[in-house]
């Protein structure tokens, strides 16, 4: 049995980063999960990121 299958044969303890629906799905399946409220800077908008990077110098 490879390592990944070993992992899933145990009780899972999950940290979810970002998308909340992933967190909610695990809750629905009674999986222990902690959610980290995270979004990529500027929502990943490259034009905004470019300006922000220059302002943050």
């Amino acid at each position: 049995m490879n390592k990944i299958n070993e992992l899933f044969s145990q009780e899972l303890k999950v940290i979810n980063v970002g998308i909340e629906s992933f967190y909610n799905s695990l809750i629905d399946q009674n999986v222990k999960v902690v959610n980290v409220n995270w979004k990529p800077p500027a929502g990943g908008n490259e034009k905004m990121l470019s300006i922000l990077n220059k302002l943050n110098r």
């Binding site: 979004k39 800077p41 500027a42 905004m48 302002l55």
Partner: peptide, 8 residues
């Protein structure tokens, strides 16, 4: 404005 855009 910087924080609003950065953090969304």
């Amino acid at each position: 404005v910087i924080k609003v855009v950065d953090k969304g």
